[in-house]
């Protein structure tokens, strides 16, 4: 997110009918939401689709944000709802297989991004969907425990528990993949991680 973005202020002005604030909010929050969808779906086209759908929904329910409440968990809660809806539709239509096929063929615009999403997916593979989501929000999006709890409609205790379980599984996964040694070597050499 851009450092000069004050989401709360932009949201308040958006609710008052300020179109400039709405576009500024879109510019500020879209990269983070895009990253969330990309990490979840792997396909850039789907991520962009869901992003647009999310903004349409945000516009429709913008009155449900209360002044003084944090905006980011509110945005994520709606994005999460859109993603769950998408999964349901995919499961209903049996399009999941097609989606995976498209992903395997490489639907990313640049190969680096595909590699990254692919790496993350491999790393998070043993986690349940709830644990995966918590790790993505905490570690990839950099949200606080309180923000993740609000975004996932759960308690802070439940988020902590999921994160703890996920870390335990990840530790096993990482040692199985032999990534620990590589990461330590990178850290010691001071090279980019």
């Amino acid at each position: 997110m851009q450092p000069d973005c004050n989401l709360e202020m932009l949201m308040a002005r958006y609710q008052q009918g300020d179109f400039a604030a709405a576009t500024a909010l879109v510019e500020c929050a879209t990269p983070q939401l895009h990253r969330f969808f990309l990490a979840q779906l792997g396909s850039r086209a789907d991520a962009e689709d869901l992003l647009q759908e999310t903004w349409l929904r945000i516009h429709k329910v913008r009155h449900t944000h209360r002044p003084g409440e944090p905006v980011l968990p509110w945005l994520y809660a709606i994005a999460r709802h859109i993603r769950v809806d998408h999964y349901r539709k995919v499961a209903r239509t049996g399009a999941r297989a097609r989606e995976l096929e498209a992903r395997a063929k490489g639907t990313f615009a640049d190969s680096g991004q595909f590699e990254s999403a692919h790496n993350l997916e491999a790393l998070l593979a043993p986690l349940s969907s709830g644990e995966r989501e918590v790790i993505e929000m905490l570690k990839v999006a950099g949200m606080s425990l309180e923000e993740v709890a609000r975004a996932t409609s759960s308690s802070v205790g439940s988020v902590k528990q999921k994160a703890h379980r996920a870390y335990k599984k990840l530790r096993e996964r990482i040692s199985a993949m032999g990534l620990a040694q590589r990461q330590s070597a990178k850290t010691q050499s001071g090279g980019p991680s």
């Binding site: 990269p31 983070q32 680096g112 990254s116 999403a117 570690k139 990839v140 620990a180």
Partner: peptide, 16 residues
């Protein structure tokens, strides 16, 4: 170290 690894594995925000 695990946090670093997760961040490194995540898709970069890139330019939209």
């Amino acid at each position: 170290e695990m946090d670093d690894l997760l961040r490194a594995s995540a898709p970069a925000p890139g330019t939209l």
